[in-house]
């Protein structure tokens, strides 16, 4: 009996010690992530300017569907997603496969060079791109000198080209980042699989589609989801390259929330509602990721 008791008390003290290791971190996460999320949920049922908030039920959620600026921000974000994520992933995959060839000279240089954009801050590279893509900027000068275009392209002030500029910028910044993931996954593929395929007469494209792509499926999925989540939260680039313009042609959802809260008359209630729309989209993506990853284990 006595022994059992002392065993129990020892267990208790280790329990306390164990909790003391994690309590600070847990408190911070609760205080700065979960509490704000609950506050935002409550806020999303209220409306009004600044601190004068009144309960309005589901009005904010109804407003989402008739708010043309919100619809523009969502469709811009999806435009970026649908074009930028696949282009970047295919480009990164292609580069990694080329770089995975051990007979290639200068691999280290190419790898470092292509990864280099990742060391820049989002704000810094955005400003550089804004100047490079100005109507009288270097990109237009170069294209005109090469006689690829006759007149300068309005990269920043034309609604279509402004979106393309944002996509080019993000692709520049993140292709090398994704490449590193693919490169390390490629190194884990057993070389003998390719040898066997060669003997069977499979050419390079067939090897790529029948071996490389299926082997890299989990990491491709991982990078697609992280890139998608990143794009859903796009802010720094749009804010610094185009400020969401011309009109609202490049406005992202994050920037719209920022504008609603801190630029015009603060409508925190409605801003919280818009922010829950991003949470909703990310949760759906996470469920997809979880489902697919779960299939793999089964």
């Amino acid at each position: 009996m006595k022994e059992k008791k002392s065993g129990l008390s020892l267990h208790k003290t280790t329990g306390l010690t164990a909790w003391s290791f994690i309590i600070i971190a847990v408190s911070i996460i609760v205080l700065f992530y979960f509490y704000p999320m609950i506050d935002a949920l409550l806020l999303s049922f209220k409306s009004g300017m600044g601190a004068n908030l009144q309960f309005v039920g589901l009005d904010n959620y109804k407003r989402l569907f008739t708010d043309s600026t919100f619809i523009t921000a969502v469709s811009n974000t999806f435009f970026y997603l649908i074009i930028q994520v696949p282009v970047m992933i295919i480009l990164a995959l292609f580069i990694s496969v080329l770089l995975n060839d051990s007979n290639l000279k200068g691999r280290g240089f190419f790898r470092t060079a292509i990864f280099l954009p990742c060391v820049t801050s989002l704000v810094a590279y955005s400003i550089i791109f804004k100047y490079l893509f100005a109507a009288d900027g270097l990109v237009n000068m170069l294209l005109m000198k090469l006689h690829l275009i006759a007149d300068p392209i309005q990269w920043l002030t034309d609604p279509f080209w402004a979106k393309i500029t944002i996509i080019i910028a993000i692709t520049w910044r993140w292709t090398g980042y994704n490449m590193i993931f693919y490169l390390s996954a490629l190194q884990n593929i057993d070389k003998s699989i390719y040898e066997a395929a060669k003997i069977d007469g499979a050419n390079a494209p067939r090897q790529f589609f029948n071996i490389t792509i299926p082997m890299l499926k989990p990491i491709i999925l991982f990078t697609s989801i992280t890139s998608t989540i990143g794009t859903l939260q796009l802010f720094d680039e749009v804010m610094n390259i185009t400020k969401g313009g011309p009109g609202n042609a490049t406005l992202s959802i994050s920037q719209y929330i920022y504008n609603l809260s801190f630029k015009y008359n603060a409508d925190f209630g409605y801003a919280a509602t818009v922010s829950y729309s991003i949470v909703f989209m990310i949760v759906i993506l996470a469920i997809i990721q979880f489902k697919v990853a779960g299939d793999k284990d089964a």
Binding site: G15, A18, W19, I22, A25, V26, I29, F32, Y33, F34, Y35, P36, M37, D39, A40, L43, I229, L232, Q233, F235, I253, S254, I257, Y258, S261, F262, F268, A271, A272, S275, Y276, I278, V279, I282, V283, A286
Partner: peptide, 29 residues
């Protein structure tokens, strides 16, 4: 322990919360 594993999994959920959703309540806080 079981309870700490549950807490850990709840903490992991916060990775899904985008900063866009936090900026307004954090500012108010």
């Amino acid at each position: 322990s079981k309870s700490r594993d549950i807490v850990f999994n709840i903490i992991l959920l916060s990775m899904m919360i985008p900063f866009a959703a936090l900026m307004v309540p954090l500012y108010r806080f």
